[in-house]
Computed example of a mutant assay.
Amino acid sequence: MSTELTIPQTGSEVRRLIREGSFNQPTSGVAPHHVQANVAILPKDVAFEFLLFCQRNPKPCPVVEVIEAGEVEAALTAPGSDIRTDVPLYRVYKNGELVDEPRTLESHWRDDLVTFLLGCSFSFEHALMANGIDLPYYGTERNVPMFITDIETAKSGDFSGPMVVSHRWIPQDKVVRAVQATSRFPDTHGAPIHIGDPSKIGISDITKPDFGAVWEQGNDDEVPVFWACGVTPQSVAMASKPELMITHSPGHMFVTDLKDEDLAVL
C-alpha cells in the first residue's frame, strides 16, 4: 500500500478499492480489527475431502466460511462481496503447478467451484501491537515471512502436505504476552505452534522465507516465533496436485466485515 494512501478502515472499503483496481498490495494493517481470510477454491467433487482436511488441521486451516458451488458472495462474513474480484492477487494451481497469478478470477471462474475462507494471522496483529510488539511490515507494502516446515498435516483423501508457518521476531520479555494475546483467536490460528530454534521444524535458513519477505532480527533479545499459516493449502496443492486449486497470493487476503472480537474467546 502506498504511504500516500489513507489506510482503509473497513472490510467493505478494502474490497471496493481492490475491485476498482486501486489497491493491490499485502493487506497487513488494513481495516484494523477486521477479520482477514485466506482463500482456497476447489472443484465441488473434491470440496468435501478438503473440508475434512481443514477439520483435521484446524491450526493452519480454521474455516471461517464456505461459499457454495458457483456462488461468489461471502454472504455470512462479507455481504455484497465477490470472491472473483475482491482479493488483491490470486494464484492458480493446476496439477500442483502454479500457472497464473491474476488480479481477478473472471477468466478462471467455473460454476462448480467451492470457496473456503480460512482464518488469517493478520487478524490478531493489532492484539500483538497493543501488547507492545512491533511489526515492521504492518500497514506497509512489505509482507510477513512464511516458511514451509517439516510438520506434516493430517491427510484427508488425496489432500496432504507440509504445514506452512508465519514468522515474527518477538522480544524475549513479550513472548508470554504474544502467546496469551493470540490464544484468544483460535479461528485465526491461535497460539504459536513453535517458539525458538527454526531448525526444529525444518527451517534451515531464517533469512530465506518460502513466501513473503525476510524480516531481519532487530537485536539479540528477539526470539523467533512461528504461527500456523493459511498458506498451507498452497503447499498442499503442490504436494497433492489437485486438478485445480485457486488461492490468494500469500499476504494478499480477503478482508471480511467481521470484527476480530467476533471470533475471540475469553
Rank of each mutant, 00 (worst) to 15 (best):
V223S: 02
S107E: 11
T104K: 00
D45H: 14
P26W: 00
G21T: 08
E20Q: 11
E49K: 13
G218E: 14
K44P: 01
C61A: 10
W215S: 06
D260C: 10
W227N: 02
P224M: 05
I201T: 03
G96K: 02
C120R: 02
A228S: 11
S160E: 07
G96R: 13
D100R: 10
T27A: 02
C120S: 07
F23M: 05
G196T: 04
E106L: 01
E4G: 15
P224N: 11
P79V: 07
A47E: 11
T188P: 01
V164G: 03
L105N: 03
A74Y: 04
H248I: 03
R103Q: 08
I133S: 00
A75E: 13
T207M: 12
D158E: 12
Q25I: 05
F226H: 01
P8F: 10
Q172M: 11
C61H: 08
A181I: 10
M129W: 00
S107L: 14
A69Q: 10
K59Y: 08
S28C: 07
P102M: 01
R184W: 15
E13Q: 11
F116K: 00
P32L: 09
A191K: 14
L89A: 14
K174Y: 10
K241H: 13
I133W: 02
G96F: 09
S199V: 15
Y137T: 02
D173L: 02
P32H: 06
K44E: 14
C120H: 04
I18L: 06
P242S: 02
Y138N: 09
L128K: 01
K44C: 07
T3W: 14
